[in-house]
Simulated scan of single mutants.
Amino acid sequence: MRRVVVVGYPAAELLDIACVTSTLIMSNLFGAAPPYDVSFATLGGRPVVCASGLTLAAQTVLEHETGPLDTLIIAGGIGCDDAAGNPLLIAHVRRLAAVTRRVASVCTGASVLAETGLLDGRRATTHWWHAPRLAARHPQITVDSDPIFIRDGAVATSAGVTAALDLTLAFIEEDHGAEVARTTSRHLVTYLQRPGNQAQMSMFVKPPAPDGPLSTLTAFIGANLCDDLSTPALARRAGTSERHLTRLFVKHLGSSPARYVREARLEAAARLLETTDLTMAVIAQRTGFGRAESLRQAFTSRYGIAPSAFRKSR
């Protein structure tokens, strides 16, 4: 058995825990061998009231856990600051990490892991909203708020909440192969996994541009990816100078016009790769890249994976 311990605490996020435990246990049904033996541990073995208000019973006492373990995972949640400030919890996480093959945190659980010193000198991620606080409190950690998850040696960190699912599927693929991970993913009714370096938050669900020319322009971009969307063309459509348009994009959207257009085209291409059987050439035409090779180069540069490989993983 691959022994996995998931560590929780008061006001932990239930989804952080369930994404890990349910996915690992489900993979046992589809060929994970040796299978995962998953336990939820808390200090004193006490039940915890999760951030949602639901009470979750512990299966094991954190203080009584001994190694060796295959994987130790620290959950996140709004109780992370209190957990990170609990010396007893930190001491036992540090103790177990020393006898564990692979250590990980999900979401704001990175704050707890950071207090153990295990992230020092490493690159790590966490929920995008929490990332600036983590970076300010732990300057010895290179905090990157963009990726879904990051692997740095035997330590892994994931972004917010459901990113735990992507990290867990990556662990399953690493341990048991792509077919077991793919089958587990299908039964979870999700795609296999988002690439680890995919952005945490889609540009299409970020706060919208303020009402006015910029809002109209971004709507036009999303609906007309095949058009001429160069900065001069967009400036003409907005009735402003290129320089002023760039200032507006940077101020309100945190991106130059060219970068915004590129991201919009890449996200549209990713959706078509996931949801259709269109050829690369057709997708390249529909999303404004023109040629399949241009799409391949842009996609690989952004996501670290070729479009064809991304499609196979859906």
Score class of each variant (00 low, 15 high):
Arg137Ala: 15
Ala238Ser: 07
Gly222Leu: 02
Arg259Glu: 03
Met1Leu: 07
Glu242Ile: 02
Gly239Met: 13
Lys312Ser: 14
Ala199Leu: 11
Ala306Lys: 04
Met26Gln: 11
Leu188Glu: 00
Val161Lys: 06
Arg194Cys: 01
Cys107Pro: 05
His92Tyr: 14
Glu174Phe: 02
Pro34Phe: 02
Ala154Ser: 14
Glu274Tyr: 04
Pro208Ser: 12
Val250Glu: 15
Tyr260Ala: 06
Val48Phe: 14
Thr108Ala: 15
Ser111Cys: 10
Ala97Trp: 07
Ser215Met: 06
Gln198Cys: 07
Val93Leu: 01
Leu56Lys: 07
Thr116Pro: 07
Ser145Thr: 04
Leu253Phe: 02
Ala264Ile: 02
Ala269Thr: 05
Ala131Ile: 00
Ser111Arg: 13
Met1Cys: 01
Met201Trp: 09
Leu134Ile: 03
Leu295Ala: 04
Asn28Lys: 08
Cys80Asn: 12
Leu62Gly: 03
Arg133Met: 07
Ala269Cys: 05
Gly109Leu: 00
Glu65His: 06
Asn28Arg: 11
Thr184Ala: 05
Asp81Lys: 12
Arg102Glu: 09
Asp144Phe: 05
Gly288Ile: 06
Ile172Thr: 01
Ser202Cys: 06
Pro257Ile: 05
Arg133Val: 09
Val20Tyr: 04
Pro207Lys: 08
Ala292Val: 03
Gln200Glu: 11
Ala264Met: 04
Asp277Asn: 11
Cys107Lys: 05
Leu69Ile: 03
Ser202Trp: 13
Pro68Ile: 07
Val4Lys: 05
Gly117Ser: 04
Ala98Thr: 08
Ala114Phe: 04
Glu267Met: 13
Val143Asn: 03
Gly290Leu: 09
Val6Lys: 13
Gly67Glu: 01
Thr276Asn: 07
Ala292Thr: 10
Met203Asp: 11
Arg243Val: 07
Ser27His: 04
Asp228Lys: 00
Gly177Ser: 12
Ala135Asp: 08
Asp211Thr: 10
Thr168Asp: 03
Ala258Trp: 01
Val7Ile: 15
Cys50Met: 15
Asp211His: 14
Ala281His: 11
